[in-house]
Amino acid sequence: MAEAEGESLESWLNKATNPCNRQEDWEYIIGFCDQINKELEGPQIAVRLLAHKIQSPQEWEAVQALTVLEACMKNCGRRFHNEVGKFRFLNELIKVVSPKYLGDRVSEKVKTKVIELLYSWTLALPEESKIKDAYHMLKRQGIVHSDPQIPADRTLIPSPPPRPKNP
């Protein structure tokens, strides 16, 4: 078990999205989530780092980054939701799926996952109105044709952290 001592958000994310990982490594994913919760500006820094990884030309790195993003949405609470709910971050996701930006160079798997995440957040976080604006814009542009089917285990149901800490 690696300990968080001396680890930064960037080092956790590099480990969690390492293209050499044979499968998603939840120790690092949860380590990243925990680090966000520890740092004053954790969510702001984290979304910037995540946007960069999600735009990786390496599909596996981008897919892992999207899994990390999904985990953060479940485990990092309102502070993180607020950052994701800003156009500054949403625009980075839009770039991934839009042919006007990176869309032509991004795999279908990554684009599908981005659209699924956006749609699931429009349902789970109606108070984050910019997420809806972004999603509806993608529909108007014909980038999203119909709402995706979200598997039951992928909906954003707020859950208690997997490793509750005793103060």
Partner: peptide, 15 residues
């Protein structure tokens, strides 16, 4: 004030 100006600067990507 900072938050207000951040809100003003937060725009959807032009398509």
């Amino acid at each position: 004030l900072g938050e207000e100006s951040e809100e003003r600067d937060d725009h959807l990507l032009p398509m």
